[in-house]
Design a protein around this nucleic acid. Structure first.
Lengths: 207, 207
DNA sequence: CTTCGCAGACTTACACTGTAAGTACTTACA
DNA sequence: TGTAAGTACTTACAGTGTAAGTCTGCGAAG
């Protein structure tokens, strides 16, 4: 009866998987423990509390973004960083939600390295610290905005049926002509294209 | 002993106030009822469930955005709509969070009018429906991104003390030179300027 | 080989959440 | 005055995070 022991990594792995599939609200300590064949309180041997758990998986997502070679020109670096960050959070939108609701904070040197690299590229572009800070915030806002709008009910109501029913019934061509015209394409747009579009505008704006 | 009766409007008013001050997690039916001098279950006479409550206050925020005169040129209309939407959600970031986490959906003709007006301005700019949809999503993403990044711990860690302590200890000039340089200004930037900056880029990109 | 310490899993318990179901009271109209 | 409707209240249940305490099995020291 070899009882193979839990590790923090195993806990975080399972937590990220569970959050991705069941959403942030669906990630409970008891369910997570059950997934690992363990009782809820055992998790607290490897994780301080739920906040620490969320911090851990958030840091993972940050650390999963590949950092470009510092020798590359700043435009190239910025593009790689922005696209990488977007890809990471687009794969785990639930973490983006946790971050913007302040339920998680990536307190990890690995996460800071990403932030430092982004700001570094902006500084190398010749921006003063103030403008670099603004650029960093704007970039992050674009990433989260694109990811979150895509996964929210404001554009893709396909998830829950009651709202989409209400939509079809209410959005008449008479009362909302513009929305009615755009509605069919609104659902099938990929947020990756939104982001690409915005990033291009942003990079042009820097130059 | 005149028992003045509750109304849906009173409930929603108090709910928005409570959510603004105590956050989304701090808005509980019992606390809200207590605020209104009533028992929790009484609220269910005026609100279907908590989701309906959140939908209601979300719709309010949407409806609080003033719609511009349709006779104005589309650039002017778009600017008014974008700034108005941003101002509304910047005043109630908690509602922005509820929307992107899909905990609320503004199922109201008033809310749809705002959406229709935005898309209408984009169509009048000469965009085909596909591009108009993308523009609408991008605009919404910019609004939510700017608001949420500002109120999250990623830039303004002033809220909770433990993270900010960890930050100061970890962000050394040696290991994170760029972040270290920008850190002082990072906290004091107003997200309204971020948004203005992005909106200008966006409007230029349309032309 | 025995024994001790201890890390890690388990158990119990508490205050909190949303809300289903049932009861009582207050008012408006016949 | 009787009745119907609407609103508020009470109780109860399953779920949450987690504080506090208990048990168990393994590795090291005597």
């Amino acid at each position: 009866m070899a009882r193979e022991t839990l590790t923090r990594d195993k806990v975080l792995d399972a937590a990220l998987r569970l959050a991705d599939s069941d959403g942030l609200a669906g990630l409970s300590m008891r369910k997570l423990a059950g997934e690992l064949g363990v009782e809820a309180m055992s998790l607290y041997n490897h994780v301080e509390n739920k906040r620490d758990l969320l911090n851990g998986i958030a840091a993972r997502v940050f650390e999963s973004v590949p950092l470009p070679d510092r020798a590359l020109p700043w435009q190239e670096r910025l593009r790689v960083l922005a696209n990488g960050t977007f890809a990471a959070f687009n794969e785990h939108p639930v973490i983006a939600r946790a971050l913007v609701s302040d339920e998680a904070n990536p307190l990890t040197v690995g996460a800071l390295r990403l932030i430092d690299a982004i700001i570094g590229a902006l500084l190398d572009a010749g921006l003063d610290p103030y403008r670099a800070a603004r650029g960093y915030r704007s970039l992050l806002g674009m990433v989260f905005g694109a990811v979150l709008v895509d996964s929210s009910g404001l554009t893709a109501e396909a998830a829950q049926t009651p709202p989409v029913e209400w939509f079809r019934r209410t959005v008449s061509a008479r009362e909302f002509p513009n929305l009615h015209q755009v509605l069919p394409v609104l659902a099938e747009i990929d947020c990756a294209q939104d982001f690409e579009f915005q990033l291009e505008l942003f990079l042009n704006g820097l130059a």
